[in-house]
Nucleic acid binder design. Structure first.
Length: 299
DNA sequence: ACCCAGGGTGACG
DNA sequence: CGTCACCATGGG
Protein backbone atom coordinates (compact mmCIF):
# COMPACT_ATOMS: atom_id res chain seq x y z
CA UNK A 1 0.00 0.00 0.00
CA UNK A 2 1.03 3.63 -0.35
CA UNK A 3 0.14 7.01 1.12
CA UNK A 4 0.29 9.50 -1.69
CA UNK A 5 0.65 9.58 -5.48
CA UNK A 6 1.72 12.86 -7.04
CA UNK A 7 2.04 13.63 -10.75
CA UNK A 8 3.90 16.72 -11.90
CA UNK A 9 5.61 17.64 -15.17
CA UNK A 10 5.70 14.10 -16.45
CA UNK A 11 7.05 12.59 -13.26
CA UNK A 12 5.05 10.24 -11.06
CA UNK A 13 6.11 10.17 -7.42
CA UNK A 14 4.50 7.68 -5.08
CA UNK A 15 5.38 7.96 -1.39
CA UNK A 16 4.70 6.00 1.77
CA UNK A 17 5.20 2.59 0.16
CA UNK A 18 5.66 0.01 2.90
CA UNK A 19 7.61 -2.76 1.17
CA UNK A 20 9.45 -2.13 -2.07
CA UNK A 21 12.83 -3.31 -3.29
CA UNK A 22 13.13 -2.44 -6.99
CA UNK A 23 16.31 -4.44 -7.50
CA UNK A 24 14.64 -7.63 -6.29
CA UNK A 25 11.31 -6.91 -7.96
CA UNK A 26 12.73 -6.23 -11.41
CA UNK A 27 15.47 -8.87 -11.48
CA UNK A 28 13.70 -11.85 -9.95
CA UNK A 29 12.56 -13.44 -13.18
CA UNK A 30 8.95 -12.32 -13.49
CA UNK A 31 9.66 -9.58 -16.06
CA UNK A 32 12.55 -9.60 -18.52
CA UNK A 33 12.36 -6.09 -19.92
CA UNK A 34 13.98 -3.98 -17.17
CA UNK A 35 17.64 -3.00 -17.20
CA UNK A 36 19.66 -1.15 -14.60
CA UNK A 37 21.11 2.14 -15.92
CA UNK A 38 22.76 5.25 -14.50
CA UNK A 39 19.36 6.97 -14.45
CA UNK A 40 17.58 4.12 -12.68
CA UNK A 41 15.82 1.02 -13.97
CA UNK A 42 14.72 1.36 -17.60
CA UNK A 43 11.84 -0.74 -18.86
CA UNK A 44 8.88 -0.98 -21.20
CA UNK A 45 5.43 -1.97 -19.99
CA UNK A 46 2.06 -1.68 -21.76
CA UNK A 47 3.86 0.04 -24.62
CA UNK A 48 5.30 2.78 -22.39
CA UNK A 49 9.01 3.18 -21.71
CA UNK A 50 10.07 4.69 -18.40
CA UNK A 51 12.78 4.94 -15.80
CA UNK A 52 12.04 3.81 -12.25
CA UNK A 53 13.88 4.82 -9.11
CA UNK A 54 13.08 3.91 -5.52
CA UNK A 55 14.37 4.94 -2.11
CA UNK A 56 12.95 5.30 1.39
CA UNK A 57 9.48 4.08 0.55
CA UNK A 58 9.28 6.37 -2.46
CA UNK A 59 8.94 5.33 -6.10
CA UNK A 60 9.61 7.75 -8.96
CA UNK A 61 8.63 6.96 -12.56
CA UNK A 62 9.48 9.15 -15.54
CA UNK A 63 8.57 10.10 -18.16
CA UNK A 64 4.94 9.39 -17.31
CA UNK A 65 1.79 10.74 -18.93
CA UNK A 66 -0.87 11.73 -16.42
CA UNK A 67 -3.28 9.24 -17.97
CA UNK A 68 -0.80 6.41 -17.25
CA UNK A 69 -0.65 7.02 -13.48
CA UNK A 70 -3.24 4.36 -12.52
CA UNK A 71 -1.55 1.82 -14.78
CA UNK A 72 1.87 2.26 -13.14
CA UNK A 73 0.32 2.07 -9.69
CA UNK A 74 -1.30 -1.18 -10.71
CA UNK A 75 1.86 -2.44 -12.47
CA UNK A 76 3.94 -2.20 -9.31
CA UNK A 77 1.07 -3.67 -7.25
CA UNK A 78 1.14 -0.66 -4.94
CA UNK A 79 -2.42 -1.22 -3.72
CA UNK A 80 -1.70 -4.57 -2.11
CA UNK A 81 -0.77 -4.83 1.57
CA UNK A 82 2.70 -6.39 1.48
CA UNK A 83 3.27 -5.66 5.15
CA UNK A 84 0.64 -8.26 5.97
CA UNK A 85 2.31 -10.75 3.64
CA UNK A 86 5.77 -10.19 5.15
CA UNK A 87 4.25 -10.49 8.63
CA UNK A 88 2.86 -13.88 7.64
CA UNK A 89 6.30 -14.92 6.37
CA UNK A 90 8.03 -13.70 9.53
CA UNK A 91 5.65 -15.61 11.79
CA UNK A 92 6.24 -18.90 9.97
CA UNK A 93 9.44 -20.58 11.15
CA UNK A 94 9.80 -22.40 7.84
CA UNK A 95 9.45 -19.25 5.72
CA UNK A 96 11.12 -16.55 7.79
CA UNK A 97 14.58 -17.38 6.37
CA UNK A 98 13.39 -16.01 3.01
CA UNK A 99 12.92 -12.46 4.25
CA UNK A 100 16.55 -11.28 4.50
CA UNK A 101 17.03 -12.20 0.83
CA UNK A 102 13.57 -11.38 -0.54
CA UNK A 103 11.97 -8.60 1.51
CA UNK A 104 10.52 -5.89 -0.69
CA UNK A 105 9.70 -8.13 -3.65
CA UNK A 106 6.48 -7.24 -5.41
CA UNK A 107 4.53 -9.23 -7.96
CA UNK A 108 4.07 -7.03 -11.02
CA UNK A 109 0.80 -6.81 -12.94
CA UNK A 110 2.01 -7.24 -16.51
CA UNK A 111 0.25 -7.32 -19.86
CA UNK A 112 -1.30 -10.81 -20.38
CA UNK A 113 -0.27 -11.45 -24.00
CA UNK A 114 3.33 -10.40 -23.29
CA UNK A 115 3.32 -12.69 -20.25
CA UNK A 116 1.92 -15.58 -22.30
CA UNK A 117 4.68 -15.36 -24.92
CA UNK A 118 7.40 -14.66 -22.35
CA UNK A 119 6.63 -17.74 -20.31
CA UNK A 120 6.17 -20.00 -23.31
CA UNK A 121 9.77 -19.03 -24.05
CA UNK A 122 10.75 -19.67 -20.42
CA UNK A 123 10.12 -23.43 -20.59
CA UNK A 124 13.30 -25.43 -20.01
CA UNK A 125 15.29 -22.22 -20.51
CA UNK A 126 17.38 -19.88 -18.38
CA UNK A 127 16.67 -16.27 -17.46
CA UNK A 128 19.56 -14.78 -19.44
CA UNK A 129 18.46 -16.48 -22.64
CA UNK A 130 14.82 -15.62 -22.02
CA UNK A 131 15.68 -11.92 -21.72
CA UNK A 132 17.82 -12.09 -24.86
CA UNK A 133 15.03 -13.74 -26.85
CA UNK A 134 12.45 -11.21 -25.67
CA UNK A 135 14.71 -8.28 -26.58
CA UNK A 136 15.34 -9.71 -30.04
CA UNK A 137 11.65 -10.44 -30.51
CA UNK A 138 10.78 -6.82 -29.70
CA UNK A 139 13.48 -5.56 -32.05
CA UNK A 140 12.27 -7.85 -34.79
CA UNK A 141 8.52 -7.31 -34.64
CA UNK A 142 7.73 -4.60 -32.07
CA UNK A 143 6.54 -1.13 -32.96
CA UNK A 144 9.20 1.54 -32.55
CA UNK A 145 8.10 4.38 -30.30
CA UNK A 146 9.79 7.59 -29.24
CA UNK A 147 10.14 9.01 -25.73
CA UNK A 148 9.70 12.74 -25.05
CA UNK A 149 13.49 13.20 -25.05
CA UNK A 150 13.77 11.59 -28.47
CA UNK A 151 15.08 8.23 -27.30
CA UNK A 152 13.63 5.37 -29.29
CA UNK A 153 12.51 2.01 -27.94
CA UNK A 154 10.71 -1.11 -29.15
CA UNK A 155 7.32 -2.08 -27.76
CA UNK A 156 6.41 -5.70 -27.18
CA UNK A 157 4.97 -6.94 -30.49
CA UNK A 158 1.23 -7.18 -31.01
CA UNK A 159 -0.37 -10.63 -31.37
CA UNK A 160 -0.83 -9.91 -35.10
CA UNK A 161 2.85 -9.04 -35.53
CA UNK A 162 4.05 -12.25 -33.90
CA UNK A 163 1.43 -14.35 -35.68
CA UNK A 164 2.77 -13.01 -38.97
CA UNK A 165 6.36 -14.16 -38.29
CA UNK A 166 7.50 -17.37 -39.94
CA UNK A 167 9.20 -20.14 -37.98
CA UNK A 168 12.68 -19.22 -39.21
CA UNK A 169 12.24 -15.70 -37.87
CA UNK A 170 11.11 -17.08 -34.52
CA UNK A 171 14.06 -19.46 -34.40
CA UNK A 172 16.37 -16.54 -35.16
CA UNK A 173 15.43 -14.93 -31.85
CA UNK A 174 16.44 -18.13 -30.05
CA UNK A 175 13.00 -19.66 -29.53
CA UNK A 176 14.33 -23.07 -30.57
CA UNK A 177 11.72 -25.82 -30.48
CA UNK A 178 9.25 -23.38 -28.88
CA UNK A 179 8.93 -21.42 -32.15
CA UNK A 180 5.71 -23.14 -33.31
CA UNK A 181 4.21 -22.74 -29.82
CA UNK A 182 4.84 -18.99 -29.94
CA UNK A 183 3.47 -18.68 -33.45
CA UNK A 184 0.29 -20.69 -32.82
CA UNK A 185 -0.45 -19.09 -29.46
CA UNK A 186 -0.05 -15.61 -30.99
CA UNK A 187 -2.49 -16.61 -33.73
CA UNK A 188 -5.07 -17.66 -31.14
CA UNK A 189 -4.84 -14.26 -29.45
CA UNK A 190 -4.84 -12.44 -32.79
CA UNK A 191 -8.02 -14.34 -33.63
CA UNK A 192 -9.75 -12.74 -30.67
CA UNK A 193 -8.93 -14.67 -27.50
CA UNK A 194 -10.04 -12.64 -24.48
CA UNK A 195 -7.93 -12.86 -21.29
CA UNK A 196 -10.29 -10.80 -19.14
CA UNK A 197 -12.69 -13.57 -18.03
CA UNK A 198 -9.68 -15.44 -16.59
CA UNK A 199 -9.42 -12.83 -13.83
CA UNK A 200 -12.69 -13.96 -12.25
CA UNK A 201 -13.13 -17.67 -13.01
CA UNK A 202 -12.33 -20.34 -10.44
CA UNK A 203 -8.57 -20.88 -10.46
CA UNK A 204 -8.72 -24.41 -11.88
CA UNK A 205 -11.02 -23.29 -14.68
CA UNK A 206 -8.68 -20.42 -15.59
CA UNK A 207 -5.71 -22.78 -15.61
CA UNK A 208 -7.56 -25.22 -17.84
CA UNK A 209 -8.31 -22.49 -20.38
CA UNK A 210 -4.69 -21.34 -20.47
CA UNK A 211 -3.29 -24.86 -20.91
CA UNK A 212 -5.27 -24.85 -24.16
CA UNK A 213 -2.47 -22.73 -25.63
CA UNK A 214 0.30 -24.78 -27.21
CA UNK A 215 3.43 -24.56 -25.06
CA UNK A 216 1.42 -23.76 -21.94
CA UNK A 217 1.29 -26.40 -19.21
CA UNK A 218 0.32 -26.03 -15.55
CA UNK A 219 3.46 -24.12 -14.52
CA UNK A 220 3.36 -21.55 -17.32
CA UNK A 221 -0.40 -21.16 -16.84
CA UNK A 222 0.15 -20.30 -13.18
CA UNK A 223 2.85 -17.76 -14.15
CA UNK A 224 0.41 -16.03 -16.51
CA UNK A 225 -2.32 -16.02 -13.85
CA UNK A 226 -0.01 -14.71 -11.12
CA UNK A 227 2.04 -12.21 -13.13
CA UNK A 228 -0.64 -10.72 -15.39
CA UNK A 229 -4.16 -11.62 -14.32
CA UNK A 230 -4.24 -10.66 -10.66
CA UNK A 231 -4.45 -14.23 -9.34
CA UNK A 232 -2.39 -14.07 -6.15
CA UNK A 233 -3.34 -17.67 -5.33
CA UNK A 234 -1.76 -19.13 -8.48
CA UNK A 235 1.34 -21.06 -7.42
CA UNK A 236 3.85 -21.85 -10.19
CA UNK A 237 5.98 -24.88 -9.36
CA UNK A 238 9.32 -25.01 -11.18
CA UNK A 239 12.61 -26.74 -10.43
CA UNK A 240 13.75 -24.08 -7.95
CA UNK A 241 10.49 -24.01 -6.00
CA UNK A 242 10.42 -27.79 -6.00
CA UNK A 243 13.89 -27.95 -4.46
CA UNK A 244 13.12 -25.17 -1.97
CA UNK A 245 9.85 -26.66 -0.75
CA UNK A 246 11.44 -30.09 -0.52
CA UNK A 247 14.05 -28.87 1.94
CA UNK A 248 11.96 -26.24 3.77
CA UNK A 249 8.71 -28.16 4.28
CA UNK A 250 9.22 -31.87 3.62
CA UNK A 251 12.56 -32.64 5.29
CA UNK A 252 14.32 -33.42 2.03
CA UNK A 253 11.69 -35.87 0.84
CA UNK A 254 9.99 -35.28 -2.48
CA UNK A 255 6.35 -34.38 -1.73
CA UNK A 256 3.46 -36.06 -3.51
CA UNK A 257 0.92 -34.09 -5.47
CA UNK A 258 -1.63 -34.13 -2.66
CA UNK A 259 0.93 -32.96 -0.08
CA UNK A 260 1.96 -30.11 -2.35
CA UNK A 261 -1.66 -29.03 -2.83
CA UNK A 262 -2.25 -29.14 0.90
CA UNK A 263 0.76 -26.91 1.50
CA UNK A 264 -0.37 -24.35 -1.07
CA UNK A 265 -3.82 -24.27 0.53
CA UNK A 266 -2.19 -23.79 3.92
CA UNK A 267 -0.25 -20.79 2.64
CA UNK A 268 -3.55 -19.09 1.93
CA UNK A 269 -4.96 -16.70 -0.69
CA UNK A 270 -1.58 -14.95 -1.12
CA UNK A 271 0.28 -18.21 -1.80
CA UNK A 272 1.46 -17.02 -5.20
CA UNK A 273 3.04 -13.88 -3.76
CA UNK A 274 4.74 -16.01 -1.13
CA UNK A 275 5.95 -18.27 -3.93
CA UNK A 276 7.84 -15.32 -5.38
CA UNK A 277 9.64 -14.72 -2.08
CA UNK A 278 10.61 -18.38 -1.84
CA UNK A 279 11.70 -18.50 -5.48
CA UNK A 280 14.00 -15.52 -5.08
CA UNK A 281 15.41 -16.89 -1.82
CA UNK A 282 16.10 -20.27 -3.43
CA UNK A 283 17.88 -18.76 -6.41
CA UNK A 284 20.02 -16.41 -4.34
CA UNK A 285 21.05 -19.20 -2.03
CA UNK A 286 22.00 -21.46 -4.93
CA UNK A 287 23.96 -18.64 -6.51
CA UNK A 288 25.92 -18.16 -3.32
CA UNK A 289 26.82 -21.83 -3.07
CA UNK A 290 27.92 -21.78 -6.69
CA UNK A 291 30.20 -18.85 -6.01
CA UNK A 292 31.62 -20.50 -2.91
CA UNK A 293 32.22 -23.70 -4.82
CA UNK A 294 33.98 -21.89 -7.66
CA UNK A 295 36.14 -19.88 -5.31
CA UNK A 296 37.18 -22.97 -3.38
CA UNK A 297 38.07 -24.64 -6.66
CA UNK A 298 40.15 -21.64 -7.68
CA UNK A 299 42.02 -21.75 -4.37
C1' DA B 1 31.53 -34.43 -23.48
C1' DC B 2 28.02 -33.69 -20.00
C1' DC B 3 24.62 -31.10 -17.26
C1' DC B 4 21.46 -27.50 -16.53
C1' DA B 5 17.90 -23.84 -17.36
C1' DG B 6 11.03 -20.33 -14.07
C1' DG B 7 8.60 -27.36 -18.73
C1' DG B 8 5.50 -29.09 -22.35
C1' DT B 9 4.25 -32.71 -25.44
C1' DG B 10 3.27 -37.15 -26.95
C1' DA B 11 3.66 -42.10 -26.35
C1' DC B 12 3.15 -45.74 -23.50
C1' DG B 13 1.39 -48.49 -19.46
C1' DC C 1 -4.48 -41.27 -14.10
C1' DG C 2 1.48 -41.46 -13.81
C1' DT C 3 6.01 -41.83 -16.01
C1' DC C 4 9.55 -40.72 -19.42
C1' DA C 5 12.36 -39.57 -23.61
C1' DC C 6 12.70 -35.82 -26.34
C1' DC C 7 12.79 -31.19 -27.62
C1' DA C 8 16.84 -26.20 -29.44
C1' DT C 9 20.17 -23.48 -27.48
C1' DG C 10 23.96 -21.47 -24.91
C1' DG C 11 26.80 -21.29 -20.65
C1' DG C 12 29.29 -23.60 -16.97
Amino acid sequence: MYEKANWQNGVLTVSGIECLNLERTLSCGQSFRWKKTERGWFGVAYGCAAYAQAQNGMLRIFPCAQSDVPRWISYFDLVRNYTAIETQLRSDARLSACLPHASGIRVLNQEPFETLITFILSANNNTVRIAQSIARLCGLAGDVATMPDGQQYARFPTPQAIAALDLDALRSIGAGYRAPYVQQSARMVADGFDFEPLRHMPLLASRKVLTGFPGVGPKVADCILLFSLGRADAFPIDVWIGRALKSMFFEGEKPGKAEMERLVRELGPMSGIIQQYVFHYARKKKLATKWEKRESEDA
